[in-house]
Design a protein around this nucleic acid. Structure first.
Length: 475
RNA sequence: GCCUCCGUAGCCAAGCCUGGCAAGGCAGCGGACUUUUAAUCCGAAGAUCGUGGGUUCGAAUCCCACCGGAGGUACCA
């Protein structure tokens, strides 16, 4: 069979539904259209047959009477899953189903593998993730989720551009991994004969751009972290990071909550979204509370950096927190917060004033010694963004890197190492700057009301599948 | 990484506890049917029961190992 190299489509199924929904039952519109898509259902009744054609925008019925449809016998022998192009009049059947009469048709591609059950679809998660190309066709929720993800990125870009943010691209290969406390993937460049790391965050490069004079920048960055996989973690995921010169953490908190409220309203129609059977109110302004106040509120513990180390360790023991000997007061406070507070925050809350010890890139709090102007937003018990007034002092940054290095050498594989060039950039002068990283995957999980990150990543990381032929070769 | 659960035809699955010829539906194949909506009806077919080993007269079923997946947990966003 000759398959065409191209095909002219004059209408999408959505355009047909939009333009002809008011057509009376049993009448024809007189308008001829050409549509294309995949045949999802087919029923033949002897001298008349019906099909359901699906394209990106939805579905439309095909109406094929034997005396109208050319090569009728071949038409009713199409396989479910075949791609077809159809031309004919838009009409509505006696039962009121808007249809395209099949007056001309052509096969655009044959499905040589059987398509999944038309009623049950596919439920096996492995098949859905490995063969997303099938899942997208047969599972409407999947299609809608990824359309929403695409829309969200588009809306985000437009919103930031309207505020004069510049979209930039920074390296994925980093000679020194930095910008987040995480284990990197490493790789090797042959010509340079050097070890390179896949970025765990674009942060340090973006701040170099502020030094370079781009005062508002953002990057929608795929980042890579060599950690476990769970319903909330994929080894590669997407972060929106943005930096704004002359801004502090308060400006950035306001920006972030406004962006997310805007996205919720545009994508779901309301700032009060449904998630996991409950409501989340994303209406701004969001609550802002310090980490220490939240610990007191949720655990009844009045503790701080002033609290003796032994006492903090005792609290960790009683909470079943594994506290390593190297942990200082700041790290212990963070652990206690994560255990007692984070899972219990539902509506959005900016958690503020993180200990300096666990925030190597954040600027010191302007009033409180030992704390930083850092915040995270927790929604539905999950951290979805992390930002701060950026540390601008080169000497202080050097000192913090060295502390990290000491921890790294003490065995903490997630600690940072010294990025000499980043310190050099700061020495040229970083103006007051606020910045933030937003977990795009987790945000779309909230807005699309899905419970696992794999449902918002088209091709989530899985153990590689061995094709049957390769299995033989390996033996 | 650890714990628990799952794997039966292209898809959805029963059977497993309590061992004895591997149900049914969809898709595919043959036939009937000129307005269907998961169309319906008739017919024929389709399964190394994830893989390997063990127990047994006999294993989809019980035991062990491995492979793949899911949920939880740890680290992390």
């Amino acid at each position: 069979m000759e398959l065409p190299y191209r095909f002219d489509v004059t209408a999408t199924t959505k355009q047909i539904r939009d333009e002809h929904s008011l057509l009376a039952e049993g009448t024809s519109s007189g308008e001829t259209v050409t549509v294309a898509g995949r045949l999802m259902l087919r029923r033949s009744q002897g001298k008349v047959a019906f099909g359901v054609l699906q394209d990106t925008t939805g579905r439309i019925q095909l109406f094929a009477p034997a005396k109208v449809t050319p090569e009728y016998d071949s038409f009713i022998n199409l396989n479910i899953g075949d791609w077809v192009g159809v031309s004919g009049e838009v009409m509505k059947t006696k039962r009121g189903e808007l249809s395209v009469k099949v007056q001309q048709w052509t096969v655009l591609a044959s499905a040589h593998r059987p398509f999944p059950d038309k009623w049950h679809g596919i439920t096996d998660p492995e098949t859905r993730y490995r063969q997303r190309y099938v899942d997208l066709w047969v599972t409407e929720d999947t299609r809608e989720t990824f359309l929403m993800r695409s829309n969200m990125l588009s809306l985000t870009r437009r919103w930031l551009e309207s505020k004069d943010f510049l979209e930039v691209e920074t390296p994925v290969f980093h000679p020194i991994p930095g910008g987040a406390l995480a284990r990197p993937f490493s790789t090797h460049h042959n010509a340079l004969d050097t070890e390179l790391y896949l970025r765990v965050a674009p942060e340090l490069y973006l701040k170099r751009l502020i030094v370079g004079g781009f005062e508002k920048v953002f990057e929608i960055a795929r980042v890579f972290r060599n950690e476990g996989i769970s319903s909330r973690h994929n080894p590669e995921f997407t972060m929106l990071e943005l930096y704004q010169a002359y801004a502090d953490w308060n400006d950035i908190m306001e920006l972030a909550e406004n962006l997310i409220e805007h996205l919720a309203i545009e994508l779901t129609g309301t700032a009060v979204i449904a998630y996991d059977g409950k409501e989340i109110n994303l209406t701004t302004p969001w609550r802002r509370t310090t980490l220490l106040d939240l610990i007191e509120e949720h655990a009844g513990l009045k503790i701080s950096l002033e609290t003796p180390l032994d006492e903090l360790r005792g609290i960790c023991d009683s909470l079943d927190i594994e506290a390593l000997p190297a942990y200082g007061s700041g790290k212990l406070l963070l652990e206690i917060y994560e255990k007692t507070v984070e899972p219990n925050l539902w509506d959005p809350c900016f958690v503020t004033e993180y200990p300096l010890e666990v925030s190597p890139l954040s600027r010191e709090h302007r009033e409180k010694d030992g704390y930083t102007e850092r915040f995270e937003a927790i929604i539905a018990g999950r951290e979805i963004l992390n930002g701060f007034s950026e540390l601008v002092d080169a000497e202080e940054q050097q000192r913090r890197f060295e502390e990290q290095l000491a921890q790294n050498e003490a065995g903490d594989e997630e600690a940072m190492v010294v990025d000499f060039d980043y310190v050099r950039a700061l020495e040229y002068g970083l103006p007051p700057t606020g910045g933030i990283g937003i977990g795009i995957d987790r945000l779309i999980m909230l807005l699309a009301d899905v419970q696992t990150i794999r449902d918002v990543i088209l091709f989530p990381t899985l153990r590689p599948e061995q094709p049957p032929s390769e299995q033989r070769n390996l033996e």
